[in-house]
Design a protein around this nucleic acid. Structure first.
Length: 897
RNA sequence: GCCCUGGUGGUGGAAUUGGUAGACACGCAGGACUUAAAAUCCUGUGGCCUCACGGCCGUGCGGGUUCAAGUCCCGCCUGGGGCACCA
């Protein structure tokens, strides 16, 4: 008899909402904050991959509730940004309309699954009550600078005080004009403007941050990205580079994410070395090197094509060649620059002077030197660096080995190593590289020709977007000096057209009424997608507060997010920015913690199963509903498909290889997407099997962190399990649970299940937890167990996983309060403690299945072991697990751990 | 090229971290119930040999440590992800 999941689930979802079950808090209890990465509501709606992480966090939230925690488990929507705007443009609607519609759809889908979200705390980043505070944090960043002495952010006033006291660059502060003052302060503000090369995407009509560009293409849409010089807002995340790196160590995050962030920050310790230029007294070329020990191997210098000294350095006869080269590089996009593997560059005609030997070193420029890293100039050591080596070979430059011994050779390739001894290095010969790095820098430092320096790959984050659908900046320009707008929020005005202008300006610039104010001109760029998501976890603590981003008491109570679940694709974007903003707010005493997410778990991707048809020269995705059960497509289905789907037009049945009027298809697991016809909608599963089955099955599929394919066949097993559960409690709608004494075996089943489930949830091993339920229910069914003392605790264990069916059964058992407010059962170790041998074993002539082991090990006498196989015995004494291994005839080993 | 991760039956995946490999589930085969089907229940299900008892081989490949290796060590092959002129 199947249970009526649809009726039951709807009933309880309504009831929970009405009784505000998940919106009630008891602040006398310890807190637990479980957070999901809030979704970006796309037009396509949720597919079964989306809820995976939400289900896991919901299980943990409910588990913590049952364990006496006051749980914060909120949800909201991240709705500003490019995708929503692109979608709106495509469908010809206002992004506000489409966003609202998409959010409604998402909410409906999410509510179907029965999460314990507190919907009363829902936030939307596009809501002015929310983005008011995003703008407020931007204002704080604008009004702050990073003080390297206190090693934290401070109000810009402390910097101005300093300038007023000490002056700036040998001039009194008051002698500077307002514009000059602002230009100086912009060098320090954490939100500042800079006229520089940025990632410009023509197709999207906007600038992108580094993490939004992959392989020279935009992450969104895959359009080419070029370097364009533009005046842009930036956030000075580089000030936090060191803290962002070193604090990674204390976080309970997946190793891979920590690794990615570490590489992204890319700290390298080395030295800045200054090279004099021939016949150019006042200027020096600064280079950055992690290998100052190889300085005697330097035979030339290379500058980036954008290097600011190039003009001065280049000799007249080389001007033309150099200019040509610069123009050529400029016209290439980043991708083209990276693809060029062969060394290329040109000579400036000028020379630098070696700080030790006085030797003349030719100065080149080449695109392999990046202007944005280090100083935009390098000292080339061809003997010990791949790129320098290739460059030297191409231009026939000297290659001088300075590390190694008689056996090492640089004939064929460079010797990239830090092992060995220095050679050809005058007074430093014989020193090991590591030591040499120190002494050589020290020697250079004496004459102000070098200093130790730490460099990061991390760049400041571009914060301007030339698009409509984002938070407006709270900035007005008065005579070109940016001033903060006091009255927040600055609302996003309506515009006639929100399509990109194509001139590098935001659509907002067309709304002149909005742009022109009595105070001055408004900033017309908008903030990037990550602005709203960098602090949303704080707003959930106090989402309706109109006077603060969140009240102090609330922040003090909820503290960090205890568990954060979401995809790994945000490693270098959202997760880094959120850490940055948290540290910033911590510095300004707005937060009592400096890391947002203590524990992070990445859920894997659920892949769809695509069906592909080979047409003779390519593979075509076939919609699943045309495919037969054995993965083939019949002639009639194929002809029908041709009528409705353009992709299949023009194909001739007779030209395809078929057998018995059936075409064979290939199966393939890949990311779910509409165009691949492999999307599975959770609504369908809820309709067919119910939300509880969906929840259990998603957990049962495999480890949360792994990518795994979705196959609908396996879902039957989980559905059967829930029916068995139902039938264990009820016979023809009659409760069969009574107050009978539980059998010893049933008690054992209960306690081992409590133990296993508790451990599994704590270890995020939800798939094995579901298996454990199945085993328990099978055992109890076979035993015909009907004891309330067993079945009620079992029901509580299952409740976090399948909240609806357990709630229904709980109420049928006569309870008037919700099962989700119950107490998590505890297990009795003594019931499980006795050591049992799985096989009979003979000790002192008696064959037993359970063995009591004497406390004194020396008294243990074994006469004979009946079975040939090794037998393992374990028991716990004084919290230590003692383990005996018996092999044929003797004790071979005693392990005490 | 560098850095993370994985590799176990027909399939998804277990294995108390060195202790009976394949739990649980799907699929498949056989059986019960049924006029029949669906649903449900029972039995079997890594491979090879054997009527059977039982035996041999088996966790990507090749070595090693150990009484004992999916698990530890060394050398390869391979899937996935990230970074990639970062000086």
């Amino acid at each position: 008899m199947q249970y009526d999941f649809n009726k039951i689930e709807k009933k309880w979802q309504k009831h929970w909402e009405k009784s505000r079950l998940y919106s009630q808090y008891d602040f006398s209890k310890p807190k637990f904050y479980a957070l999901d990465m809030f979704p970006y509501p796309s037009g396509a709606g949720l597919h079964v991959g989306h809820p995976l992480g939400y289900i896991a966090s919901d299980i943990v939230s409910r588990f913590k509730r049952l364990n006496g925690f006051n749980v914060l488990h909120p949800i909201g929507f991240d709705a500003f940004g490019l995708p929503a705007e692109q979608y709106a443009i495509q469908t010809g609607q206002h992004p506000e309309t489409t966003t609202a519609k998409n959010i409604e759809n998402y909410k409906r889908q999410l509510k179907n699954i029965g999460f314990s979200f507190d919907w009363e705390r829902e936030i939307q980043t596009t809501n002015p009550n929310y983005y008011k505070w995003t703008q407020w944090i931007f204002s704080l960043l604008f009004e702050s600078w990073y003080n390297p002495h206190s090693n934290k952010s401070e109000n810009i006033k402390t910097l101005i005080d300093k300038f007023e006291r000490e002056g700036f660059e040998e001039k009194e502060w008051k002698e500077y004009s307002n514009i000059e003052k602002e230009n100086i302060l912009q060098e320090y503000r954490l939100a500042y403007q800079k006229d520089t090369y940025v990632n410009w995407c023509e197709e999207l009509g906007t600038v992108l941050a580094n993490d939004e560009v992959k392989n020279g293409l935009s992450e969104r849409g895959g359009h080419p990205v070029i370097q364009k010089k533009m005046k842009q807002w930036f956030l000075r995340i580089t000030s936090y580079a060191d803290r962002l790196l070193s604090d990674l160590g204390n976080l309970d995050w997946p190793q891979s994410i920590k690794e990615v962030q570490k590489n992204w920050i890319g700290k390298s310790v080395g030295a800045e070395i200054y090279f004099k230029i021939k016949d150019l007294e006042q200027d020096k070329i600064k280079v950055f090197s992690t290998r100052p020990d190889t300085i005697f191997g330097v035979t030339f210098l290379v500058l980036a094509p954008e290097h600011k000294l190039l003009n001065k350095i280049t000799l007249p006869k080389q001007k033309k060649v150099v200019q040509n080269y610069i123009n050529e590089t400029k016209s290439k996009n980043e991708r083209e620059r990276q693809q060029n593997k062969e060394a290329n560059g040109v000579f400036t005609g000028n020379f630098a002077i070696h700080p030790f030997t006085g030797e003349s070193l030719p100065i080149y420029l080449s695109e392999y030197v990046l202007n944005s890293y280090g100083t935009g100039a390098i000292m080339a050591v061809p003997a010990h660096d791949e790129r320098d080596y290739a460059f030297a070979k191409k231009f026939n430059l000297t290659i001088r080995q300075v590390i190694g011994d008689d056996n090492s050779s640089i004939e064929e390739k460079p010797l990239v190593t830090n092992k060995g001894k220095l050679i050809n290095s005058k007074q430093f010969d014989g020193i090991e590289p590591k030591e040499a790095q120190k002494v050589i820098v020290e020697a250079l430092q004496k004459n102000q020709r070098a200093k130790t320096k730490i460099n990061y790959k991390l760049r400041d984050a571009g914060f301007s977007r030339q698009r409509y659908w984002g938070e407006p900046f709270p900035i007005i320009y008065q005579n070109n000096v940016p001033k903060l707008v006091e009255d927040l929020p600055v609302r996003l005005p309506s515009v006639d057209s929100y399509e990109p202008t194509g001139e590098g300006k935001s659509p907002l610039s067309n709304n002149l009424q909005w742009v022109n104010t009595s105070e001055g001109l408004r900033e017309t760029d908008t903030m990037p997608g990550y602005a709203g998501s960098s602090w949303y976890f704080l707003r959930y603590m106090d989402p309706h507060n109109e006077n603060e981003f969140a009240g102090k008491n609330n922040i003090q109570y909820w503290q960090q997010v205890d568990l954060y679940i979401g995809g790994a694709e945000h490693a270098t974007g959202h997760l880094l920015y959120a850490r940055f903003w948290t540290k910033f707010l911590f510095d300004l005493d707005y937060l009592p913690f400096h890391e947002p997410f203590q524990k992070l778990v990445n859920q894997g991707m659920i892949q769809g199963e695509s069906k592909l048809l080979f047409t003779g020269d390519r593979w075509l995705h076939v919609p699943v509903n045309y495919v037969s059960k054995d993965g083939k497509i019949s002639k009639s289905s194929f002809l029908e498909l041709q009528k409705v789907n353009k992709r299949f037009e023009g194909l001739k049945w007779d030209n395809l290889s078929h057998e018995n009027d059936m075409l064979s298809l290939k199966s393939q697991s890949e990311k779910m997407s509409k165009s691949k016809f492999n999307v599975v909608n959770p609504d369908e599963i809820c309709e067919q099997y119910g939300a509880d089955t969906l929840r259990l099955y998603e957990m049962f599929l495999g480890p949360l962190q792994d990518s795994k394919p979705w196959n609908t066949q396996g879902i039957e097993g989980v559905f059967r399990f829930l029916n068995k559960l139902w039938n264990l409690f009820l016979v023809e709608q009659e409760v069969r649970v009574d107050d009978s004494q539980p059998s010893e075996y049933a008690l054992k089943t209960l306690h081992k299940t409590i133990k296993k489930i508790t451990e599994d949830i704590e270890a995020f091993s939800f798939n094995t937890a579901v298996s454990t339920f199945m085993i328990a229910i099978n055992e109890l069914t076979q035993q015909k167990c009907n004891s309330r003392d067993i079945l009620e605790p079992i029901l509580i264990l299952i409740a976090p996983f399948a909240p609806h069916i357990t709630e229904e059964l709980w109420s049928r058992l006569g309870h008037s309060s919700s099962i989700h407010n119950e107490q998590w059962p505890s297990f009795d170790d003594s019931i499980l403690k006795e050591t049992t041998a799985k096989y009979p074993i003979s000790i002192n002539g008696k064959v037993r299945t359970a063995i009591e082991l004497p406390k004194d090990l020396s008294k243990l006498e074994i006469e004979q072991i009946v079975y040939k196989d090794p037998i393992v015995l374990k028991w716990i004494e004084n919290k230590e697990i003692l383990k005996f291994i018996f092999v044929p005839g003797k004790i071979v080993n005693i392990v005490i751990r």
